[in-house]
Write a protein that binds this DNA or RNA. Structure first.
Lengths: 226, 226
DNA sequence: CATGCTTGTTAGAGCTTGTAACTCCGCGTG
DNA sequence: CACGCGGAGTTACAAGCTCTAACAAGCATG
């Protein structure tokens, strides 16, 4: 569907540029005010154009939001892949690297979420109930993230250069690779911790979040069973 | 602050009644459409009154939302306390009850979230950034929930009859009770799993959620270390 | 040059939250 | 009983949002 109009490349470049500008301002609005504060109208005003102009670039508000989600996934993915790969290079311990990699992964995950809480929050907001038009891109991005986690778990630094793509992820799943379940569990726990932390739950009941995080990491790495 | 007007009891009753009606309709809107779909205007229309009338009962939309959050916390709390207490009564195993209690708690938690996903989602939506006026009530409700979890972990069925109140929770924390950290970790993991499940993450990458959940429960109960 | 696609404009429908000003009814008190 | 006050509801309206429709202008290629 959606008869993709084929634009002249120069036009296309400009188009991407504008889309990026819009997203940049949207991220600012997101940073202070949350997802609800993102307003196409306000963005247009800030860009010096008039409201409906932006509908040339985003079909509707939801498409902008979805786009931000996809970007955030890919950003988080990179933020995870980088330190893990770097660690592999300086490689204090080569053989027993898995635990070290998981530690780095976990810390990077938490740090990323702490530094841009609203953006992290955005990843898990989207329409619970049904699937909108762009959900395929979103879940694709999610799988890509899992690819990195999976790479960290049973692979090594190659996650940096070429993170497993979705096809590989699906393959790992369908072959029943135990490490895939492991990776999912790691993600699940990380998300549980980070989500409660951002929600202010630990704060509200005076829990030492740092200590708790360290404890969870220890379980994740020390015990063969996690 | 807020000079509480002292109303005649009959008035007060009526007032509570209307507030409940509003919340009921709000829950319906929440069930299909998410939190964003809750509209004071639409609720008023459905109640047969005119828009601004509802502002006699809720200062603004946020207060309605906060009220729903508090109710949801208390509802979830009850849903957790009930089966755990019941299990204690039929008590297939008396001494080794802790694992059984945790299992029941975990299952009840997941079931509650699955049955009313939007309501569960609501619990972790509220304003990340700052604290609005009602956040004290909300975090109070959250602590109350933790009281039940804590009761399940190191107490027994008395969680049913008299769940630990916030004071006790705070006491348990300040005395550095190890079970408190344990309870928080249980909650964190449960939330991580449930949140990803509701978000459709497992579905999106064809993970067997049931198996994963069982595996996580096993870790939670079997290994002395969790 | 001329045609057509792309982008921008203004106007406006329809929705929302929330305020202001006014009416009305019932309850408790004098 | 009568009065009056307070709570509840009304309409009108401001300001904001998303998004559509209809129209004007510009760049780029045939």
């Amino acid at each position: 569907m959606e008869a993709e109009p084929r634009r002249t490349p120069i036009r296309e470049r400009f188009r991407e540029q504008v889309r990026d500008d819009v997203k940049t301002i949207a991220l600012e609005q997101l940073a202070d005010g949350g997802a609800q504060a993102i307003s196409l109208n306000a963005i247009a005003k800030e860009l010096g154009v008039s409201g409906p102009a932006l509908y040339r670039y985003f079909a509707n508000r939801d498409e902008l939001l979805s786009s931000l989600v996809v970007d955030a996934y890919s950003d988080l993915r990179d933020a995870l892949a980088r330190p893990v790969g770097a660690g592999e290079r300086r490689a204090e311990e080569r053989g027993a690297g898995e635990n070290a990699r998981i530690r780095r992964l976990a810390r990077a995950y938490r740090v990323w979420a702490q530094e841009q809480p609203h953006r992290y929050e955005l990843l898990f907001k989207p329409p619970l109930p049904g699937y909108d038009a762009h959900s395929t891109q979103i879940s694709e991005a999610g799988r890509s993230l899992m690819g990195v986690v999976l790479g960290v778990i049973d692979g090594g630094s190659d996650a940096t250069t070429s993170p497993l793509d979705s096809a590989e992820v699906l393959h790992a799943r369908s072959t029943g690779a135990p490490n895939f379940q492991l990776a999912v569990r790691v993600w699940s726990r990380l998300h549980g911790f980070v989500s409660l932390e951002l929600g202010g739950a630990y704060n509200a009941m005076s829990v030492d979040a740092d200590a708790l995080f360290d404890a969870e990491i220890d379980v994740l790495t020390d015990g063969g069973e996690l």
